[in-house]
Amino acid sequence: MAIKLTERAAEEVMRFRKEHNFDDSMLLRIGVAGGGCSGFNYTLNFDDSFDMKADSKYDCHGVSVVVDKKSSLYLDGTEVDWYDSLEKQGFTFNNPNAVKSCGCGSSFQA
C-alpha cells in the first residue's frame, strides 16, 4: 500500500506551489517526526531531492509525493485530505496505523 492525496489535497498543494513560485520539479515530502502530544507529528514540506534507496515516490492527482522508508512504516495506507471550514483549515491525515491521535489531529501514536 502507499500514501494517497485526495483530489482536494492535491489541488491545494498545486495552489500553494503556484502561489510561492515553486518549480513543478519540487516534490511534496510527507513524513513523521518524534514529538507532539501523542508521540509522532506529521510533517509536510517541499523538497527537490529524491533518493531511490531511501525514499518511495508516488503520483497523486498530478502531485509527486515522496516518503522516506522509515516514515513509510507509520504512514502506509494513509490518506491526506484538505479540510476547509469557518473554524479550521488545513491538511488532515486518515492514518490506519494510528492507535491514538490528539484532538487537533496533528500527532498520533502507532
Score class of each variant (00 low, 15 high):
C102K: 08
W82L: 13
A110F: 10
A2Y: 04
Q89I: 11
L5S: 02
A10S: 01
N45A: 07
S101T: 10
P96K: 11
S106K: 08
Y83K: 09
M26R: 06
Q109P: 00
K53G: 04
Q89R: 14
S106W: 06
D47C: 09
E87F: 15
S101E: 12
G39M: 15
L5C: 04
L5K: 00
C37V: 11
E19K: 13
L28P: 00
F50D: 09
C37W: 13
F16L: 09
D81F: 14
D84M: 12
V66S: 02
V80K: 01
V67Y: 03
G34E: 13
D24S: 14
F93V: 06
D84T: 06
M14I: 11
D24K: 12
D59I: 07
Y58H: 02
F46A: 03
F108W: 08
N94R: 13
N45P: 03
L27E: 00
H61Y: 15
N95C: 07
V63G: 02
F50H: 14
H61W: 06
M52W: 08
P96L: 12
F108T: 08
S101R: 11
D84N: 14
V65P: 00
C37A: 11
T6D: 08
K4M: 03
I3K: 00
D84G: 06
S64K: 10
H61N: 04
L27F: 04
S56H: 11
S71D: 03
L5R: 04
M14Q: 15
S25R: 15
S25K: 14
F16P: 01
E11F: 06
L73N: 11
L73K: 14
A98C: 09
F46T: 00
E7D: 08
K4P: 00
E87R: 14
F108N: 06
V63R: 00
L73P: 02
I30S: 05
N97A: 10
C104R: 08
P96A: 07
F50R: 08
D55A: 05
F108C: 10
